[in-house]
Structures are given as C-alpha cells and as structure tokens.
C-alpha cells in the first residue's frame, strides 16, 4: 500500500519533470539540434508524450548533439 503510493508519486514526478524538459526542448532545443525540424511546428506536440516518457535520454542526446554536432548522429 505504502510503496504503491510512493511508486505512483515517483511516476507522477517523473512525468512532470518530463513536461518541463518537453517545454524546454520544443521551444529552444529542437531547432538547434534537429535541422529538419526548423520551420515545422505542427508535429511538435506529437513529441510531448515521448519526451515525457524518455526525457533523460532526450537530455542526453540534446547535450551530445550540442557538443559534437552532426558527428554524434
């Protein structure tokens, strides 16, 4: 009971953190690291669920792409 509630609470925090990352990435990051996304806006909301679910991976790729550019792809 206790641990179930804790688990759900953790999940909720995880998804909320994902929401913050999604906002930051879609507003600032995506144009910097994904040239094909420049000028396309309609598809961006589609990425929100994915970013919320795997935001640590998104942050990791965001930073590697910032640092190493296209070589990291």
């Amino acid at each position: 009971m206790q641990s179930a509630a804790l688990l759900l609470e953790l999940g909720r925090w995880y998804l909320m953190a994902g929401g913050v990352v999604a906002a930051a990435f879609l507003v600032f990051g995506i144009d910097r690291v994904e040239p094909s996304a420049r000028g396309s806006y309609a598809f961006r909301p589609l990425l929100i669920p994915g970013i919320c679910l795997i935001w640590p991976l998104v942050l990791y790729r965001w930073f590697t792409l910032e640092k190493h550019g296209e070589d990291a792809r």
């Binding site: 690291v33 994904e34 598809f43 589609l46 990425l47 994915g50 991976l57 790729r61 792409l65």
Partner: peptide, 8 residues
C-alpha cells in the same frame, strides 16, 4: 515518429 530515429 521519424524525428526520433534521426534525433536519437
């Protein structure tokens, strides 16, 4: 979405 293949 194709974006993910390219981005990841």
């Amino acid at each position: 979405h194709d974006f993910w293949l390219s981005f990841l």
